[in-house]
Amino acid sequence: TQSIHIEKSDTAADTYGFSLSSVEEDGIRRLYVNSVKETGLASKKGLKAGDEILEINNRAADALNSSMLKDFLSQPSLGLLVRT
């Protein structure tokens, strides 16, 4: 696993530069990185398409609903625990 911390203040970007997809496997919801913008903040921090997001801001990914995800992604900083 890899811990990634991203700050939007690093650039004038209003997004982190990646998209997520939610997949249900064996009754457990998993979050995967769908795509990463080549010039985006997430790419600079090493996030890659296909990575599994285990935690966002110290909250287990399978416990997050879509409104919580939207809220986290609109925050000025983001902490991710990722399995590559």
Rank of each mutant, 00 (worst) to 15 (best):
T1P: 02
T1Q: 10
T1F: 11
T1V: 15
T1D: 12
T1S: 07
T1K: 07
Q2C: 09
Q2G: 05
Q2K: 15
Q2H: 15
Q2V: 15
Q2F: 15
Q2L: 13
Q2D: 00
S3G: 05
I4C: 00
I4D: 01
I4M: 06
H5A: 04
H5M: 06
H5P: 01
H5I: 11
H5F: 15
H5Q: 05
H5V: 09
I6C: 06
I6S: 02
I6E: 01
E7K: 11
E7I: 11
E7T: 13
E7H: 09
E7R: 13
E7S: 13
K8V: 02
K8D: 01
K8G: 03
K8C: 04
S9L: 01
S9T: 11
D10Q: 09
D10P: 13
T11N: 14
T11L: 10
T11D: 15
A12R: 13
A12N: 14
A12W: 07
A12M: 11
A12E: 14
A12S: 12
A13T: 14
A13M: 07
A13D: 15
A13N: 13
T15C: 11
T15D: 15
T15E: 14
T15S: 14
Y16I: 02
Y16E: 04
Y16K: 00
Y16T: 02
Y16V: 04
Y16F: 13
Y16H: 04
G17N: 01
G17C: 02
G17D: 06
F18L: 10
S19M: 06
S19P: 05
S19D: 14
S19E: 12
S19C: 09
L20Q: 15
S21P: 00
S21R: 14
S21K: 15
S21F: 11
S22F: 15
S22P: 09
S22D: 08
S22W: 14
S22Y: 15
S22G: 07
S22C: 12
S22A: 12
S22R: 10
V23W: 06
V23Q: 09
V23L: 08
V23K: 12
E24A: 07
E24C: 12
E25R: 11
E25P: 00
E25I: 13
E25Q: 12
E25M: 08
E25A: 08
E25S: 10
E25T: 12
D26C: 10
D26L: 09
D26F: 07
D26S: 11
D26H: 08
D26N: 14
D26T: 07
D26K: 11
D26Y: 13
G27M: 01
G27A: 02
G27I: 02
G27T: 03
G27R: 02
G27P: 00
I28V: 13
I28C: 13
I28N: 09
I28G: 08
I28W: 06
I28A: 10
R29T: 13
R29E: 07
R29D: 05
R29H: 07
R29V: 12
R30S: 03
R30Y: 04
R30I: 02
R30K: 14
L31M: 07
L31I: 07
L31K: 00
L31R: 02
L31Q: 00
Y32G: 02
Y32K: 03
Y32Q: 05
Y32D: 01
V33S: 03
V33I: 10
V33D: 03
V33W: 00
V33L: 01
N34M: 13
N34D: 13
N34S: 14
S35K: 10
S35H: 09
S35T: 11
V36Y: 01
V36G: 04
V36D: 06
V36T: 02
V36S: 03
K37C: 15
K37H: 12
K37N: 07
K37I: 12
K37E: 15
K37P: 00
E38K: 14
E38M: 07
E38D: 13
E38P: 13
E38G: 09
T39Y: 15
T39D: 15
T39A: 13
T39M: 13
T39L: 09
G40P: 00
G40Y: 00
G40L: 02
G40W: 00
G40H: 00
L41T: 05
L41W: 04
L41A: 12
A42T: 04
A42C: 08
A42N: 01
A42Q: 06
A42I: 04
A42M: 03
S43N: 13
S43K: 08
S43D: 13
K44I: 10
K44L: 10
K44V: 08
K44Y: 09
K44C: 04
G46H: 08
G46D: 04
G46C: 03
G46A: 02
L47H: 01
L47R: 01
L47I: 12
L47W: 03
K48R: 12
K48Q: 09
K48F: 00
K48C: 08
K48T: 07
K48W: 00
A49N: 11
A49C: 11
A49Q: 11
A49P: 14
A49F: 06
A49Y: 06
G50P: 01
G50V: 00
G50R: 00
G50Q: 03
D51E: 01
D51G: 01
D51V: 05
D51N: 02
E52W: 02
E52S: 00
E52D: 01
E52P: 00
I53P: 03
I53E: 01
I53A: 01
I53H: 01
L54R: 03
L54S: 02
L54P: 01
L54V: 08
L54Q: 03
L54D: 01
E55R: 08
E55I: 00
E55M: 07
E55Q: 07
E55T: 07
I56K: 04
I56N: 04
I56R: 01
I56F: 00
I56C: 03
N57E: 06
N57P: 00
N57H: 03
N57T: 00
N58P: 07
R59Q: 15
R59Y: 15
R59L: 14
R59S: 10
R59K: 12
A60R: 14
A60S: 12
A60W: 01
A60Q: 14
A60G: 10
A60P: 15
A61I: 09
A61P: 14
A61G: 02
A61M: 07
A61R: 00
D62S: 13
D62M: 09
D62K: 11
D62P: 10
A63V: 11
A63C: 12
A63H: 10
A63L: 11
A63T: 14
L64H: 00
L64S: 03
L64E: 03
L64P: 03
L64V: 14
L64C: 13
N65S: 12
N65Y: 04
N65P: 10
N65V: 02
N65R: 06
N65C: 10
N65I: 00
N65D: 14
S66C: 13
S66L: 06
S66T: 14
S67C: 14
S67M: 10
S67Q: 11
S67F: 13
S67R: 11
S67D: 15
M68N: 08
M68Q: 13
M68V: 13
M68W: 00
L69A: 04
L69E: 06
L69I: 12
L69T: 06
L69Y: 13
L69F: 11
K70E: 13
K70D: 15
K70V: 10
K70H: 14
K70F: 07
K70S: 12
D71P: 03
D71K: 13
D71A: 11
D71Q: 11
F72H: 12
F72G: 04
F72K: 03
F72N: 12
F72E: 07
L73T: 04
L73H: 06
L73S: 06
L73P: 02
L73G: 04
L73K: 07
L73I: 04
L73C: 08
L73Q: 09
L73V: 05
S74M: 15
S74L: 07
S74R: 14
Q75C: 09
Q75D: 07
Q75M: 13
P76C: 06
P76V: 04
P76N: 08
P76A: 11
P76R: 10
S77A: 12
S77N: 07
L78R: 01
L78V: 11
L78Y: 06
L78D: 05
L78K: 03
L78W: 03
G79Y: 10
G79R: 15
G79D: 15
L80S: 04
L80Q: 05
L80H: 02
L81W: 02
L81K: 15
L81Y: 05
L81R: 13
L81I: 08
R83L: 01
T84L: 00
T84W: 07
T84A: 07
